[in-house]
Structures are given as C-alpha cells and as structure tokens.
Simulated scan of single mutants.
Amino acid sequence: MTENLEQVAEEIRAELARQDRLREEALLLSRSVIRLSALAIRAIHRAAFDDAETRLAEAREAVARLDEIGQACPLFQATGFTSDAQKEYAEACLTDALVRGRPLPRPEELRVPIAPYLNALGEAASELRRSILDALRADRLEICEALLEAMQSIYDFLATVDYPDALTGGLRRTTDNVRRVLENTRGDLTTALRQQRLQEELRRLERRLPQPPS
C-alpha cells in the first residue's frame, strides 16, 4: 500500500524546498520595495524627481518579480509582506502623480491588487499634507488649494467604497485617517488664507492713509 510513499515524499520535499526558496526571495524583494518606495517619497517631497524616478524604477522591477513569484506560488499573493510592499510602492507612485499633477496610475499598470492600491491611495492623499504645508511656507496658496481639492476628491471616493475588510484590506481605518488629516490640513490652510487677506487689507489701508509730513 505504501510502495510509492518514498517517491511521494521526495516530490513533496522538492516542492516545499522550491516554495521556501521563493518565500525567501519574496521577503528580500518586499523589504527592498518598501525601502525604495520610502526613499522615493522623500525625494518627491524635496522635488528631487529624477532621484524619485530612479528609486521607483528599481522598485518597479522588484514588484514585477514579486508578481512572478505570486503566479508561481499563489500562496504568497495574500501574505502580509507582499501586500505591504505592493501598498508602499503604489503609495509612492500615486504620491508622485498627485504632487506633479499627473494622471493617477491604475492598479493594473502598477501590477498591484485592488486592496493595497486603495489603501495606498489613502496614504498618498495623507502625504499631500506635507506638500501643502511646504507650499504654505512658500506662499504658494494656489498650489495648496489644488492639492487640498485632490485630497478631498480621494476621501470622497474612498468613503463610498463600502465593502468588507476582507476585500479592501482594512480600508475603513485608512479612510478615517485621511478624514482626520484632511480636516487638520483644511484648518491650517483656512487660517493661512485669512492671515493673507488680513495682510492685504492692512496694506490697502496703509496706502489710503495720508502720509506724515517729512
């Protein structure tokens, strides 16, 4: 009854060894993607877009290999380390598009599943707060308003994605965080706009006042 047990056992060991090698490779790739994506976002906030594109290109190759591993071993497609890497990469790409005023890349273009893409979109919207505050310090209020509008549009969309967490990867928590960041940012921008208008009114008043005799 067990004449072929040794053969079956060898085949199982070989398959497990193959999966273990793929798992180790996927872990290394995931860590690399997360690191490169973080560096890309930092470069984007510094307006060092050439550096950001270099980091994103490296991350893109690693994400493509992760996708190949997922096809070869579907067990890894739903693992936490893979989805975390996909989310971080998508966040960097989406942040780059938002900051530079470019069309948003689609999930299939990034080779990222919908759940990590949605959470990445929320994280990218929150990243815009830093860009808005930087623009505020530079008195570039028109850019602030455009970025705030983008944040609002993303929040409005995410708030309508009413599906179980098993499908969206805990999107509700991300959406709640976007709402808090959006409210804080709108408050900061409103205060800055009021201060700007007050300064403009004071300057107009000074011009209307009679000049003291020399």
Rank of each mutant, 00 (worst) to 15 (best):
L29N: 09
H45T: 01
G70T: 09
R35W: 10
R60S: 12
T82S: 09
D67I: 00
G70A: 03
T54D: 04
R42Q: 08
A57S: 14
Q86L: 09
D84C: 03
P74W: 06
D84S: 13
D84I: 06
S32T: 14
Q71H: 14
D50W: 01
Q71A: 11
L39I: 00
F76V: 08
L75T: 12
E53D: 10
V63L: 04
A47V: 01
T79W: 13
S30M: 10
Q71F: 09
S32N: 11
A85M: 10
A43C: 01
Q77I: 04
E58M: 04
D84L: 10
A85V: 11
R65I: 06
R42M: 02
E53G: 02
A38P: 00
E53T: 05
T82E: 03
L28Y: 14
P74T: 07
L66V: 08
P74R: 08
A78E: 14
A85H: 12
Q77G: 03
F76G: 04
R60I: 00
D51M: 02
G80K: 12
R35N: 11
A38R: 15
L39E: 14
T79R: 15
A62L: 04
S30V: 10
E68D: 13
E53C: 02
L27V: 15
I41L: 02
A78M: 09
Q86K: 13
A26K: 12
A26F: 14
S83F: 05
A52R: 01
L75A: 12
L39C: 01
T54L: 03
G70M: 04
I69K: 06
Q86M: 13
I41D: 01
A38H: 13
S30I: 10
I44N: 07
L28G: 11
A72W: 05
S30A: 15
L39A: 11
S83T: 14
L56E: 02
A47S: 12
F76W: 13
T82K: 08
L28P: 06
L27F: 15
R31E: 09
F76Q: 07
V33A: 06
G80D: 13
S37L: 02
A72F: 04
V33G: 07
I34H: 03
A48L: 00
L28E: 13
A57K: 14
R46G: 00
A57P: 03
A43H: 01
A85F: 13
L29Q: 09
Q86G: 03
D51R: 08
F49V: 02
A72E: 15
R55V: 00
I69A: 06
S37G: 08
R65Q: 09
T54R: 10
